[in-house]
């Protein structure tokens, strides 16, 4: 019987959140890592050694959530970094990413820590409280809010005017919340990414590197055959998982592809083909998590990760060619 010790994990340079204290129990005795297409992160050894937890490779297999004491991810700031905090499972992100992505609201200090390196991990001396067990999700404030207005509506003696008022109020509140979420999305995910890719494009175009770069990419991006080859290469099983995280590479290529179209180096009639070719490998990094969302069993995840990568590879050329056929007559 293994002995479980509490470990303390602090944020690394540029990181966010924490410190977390992780204590394995007989039931919660696994540390799952979903990093680099199945490559174990550097910090895993130290965590296993100190805590006594059993490592599980999330790309190869999965295990029931109630056995997971800790999840290690390498998310660039889109999805994974919020998924496990949302389920209140303590999460280490080895990338220094803070509150980001569509699930940013769930990324809070007591369940999430990022930018973690070996030196940030130590045995807990008992000073920090043990991280909350993920059994109970915190009560949602929004729900209570709704209940109050619903109670008012159900209280019987509400006259017609009050009913109309409440109905209108609910619609207005819904739209207001929708607007708040939309602005958050822009601030949390859209603007940072635009700034990042803009700076890259600035460097590419401003240094004269751009001309050399377009000449280099021209044979690949500038014609259908090149795009077809690009699509097939990007979807090679294994490589596809490495290229996936946050669709960062696809988004950079999309930005560059668009800038090249605007500059007249690439014909706009290739835009649709480009859209499909640059993204053949979509979501190959996300398969275990996505299947987990679908409540798949362990064997299904083991089979599914390989199967989806194969099918991406097999169908990539079909997708690019379909896009080519359906581009006929567009921006001709």
């Amino acid at each position: 019987m293994a002995e479980y010790r509490a470990i303390k994990v602090e944020k690394g340079s540029g990181g966010f959140g924490g410190p977390l204290t992780i204590q394995g129990t007989e039931q919660k005795n696994k540390v799952m890592y979903i990093t680099g297409g199945g490559v174990a992160p550097e910090i895993l050894d130290k965590i296993v050694e100190l805590s006594g937890l059993e490592p599980v490779n999330g790309f190869k297999t999965t295990c029931p959530e109630d056995q997971i004491a800790l999840v290690i991810i390498d998310c660039g700031g889109t999805l994974r970094c919020g998924l496990y905090p949302k389920k209140r499972i303590p999460t280490i992100n080895i990338n220094p990413v803070g509150k980001a992505g569509p699930l940013a609201q769930y990324i809070v200090e007591d369940i999430y820590v990022s930018g973690v390196k070996d030196e940030n991990i130590s045995l807990a001396d008992g000073s920090a409280p043990v991280a909350a067990a993920p059994a109970e999700a915190p009560a949602e404030e929004k729900k209570e809010y709704k209940k109050i207005s619903e109670q008012m509506a159900e209280s019987g003696n509400a006259n017609l005017m009050a009913k109309i008022g409440l109905g209108a109020g609910k619609v207005v509140a819904t739209f207001n919340q929708a607007a708040r979420d939309a602005v958050q999305t822009c601030i949390n995910t859209l603007l940072p990414f635009m700034a990042f890719v803009s700076m890259l494009i600035g460097i590419i175009n401003g240094t004269g590197f751009g001309d050399a770069f377009s000449k280099l990419l021209q044979p690949l991006l500038g014609n259908v055959v090149g795009l077809l080859v690009l699509g097939i290469i990007c979807s090679i099983p294994g490589l596809s998982a490495l290229l996936g995280p946050g669709a960062v590479i696809s988004q950079i290529l999309g930005g560059i592809f668009g800038a090249e179209i605007a500059a007249g180096h690439i014909s706009p009639s290739l835009a649709l083909v480009g859209l499909f070719a640059l993204n053949c490998h979509a979501a190959c990094d996300f398969i275990p998590v996505g299947l987990g969302l679908a409540e798949a069993e362990t064997e299904t995840v083991e089979v599914g990760v390989v199967s989806v990568m194969y099918s991406r590879f097999i169908t990539s050329w079909i997708r690019v060619l379909l896009a080519f056929v359906f581009s006929i007559g567009m921006y001709a």
Binding site: T78, L79, C186, G254, I256, G258, E260, G274, L275
Partner: peptide, 15 residues
């Protein structure tokens, strides 16, 4: 998918 929309928007903006 607003977090990954720059693939489309990047290309569409060029057009």
């Amino acid at each position: 998918n607003p977090a990954e929309i720059l693939i489309y928007l990047g290309i569409a903006n060029g057009v």
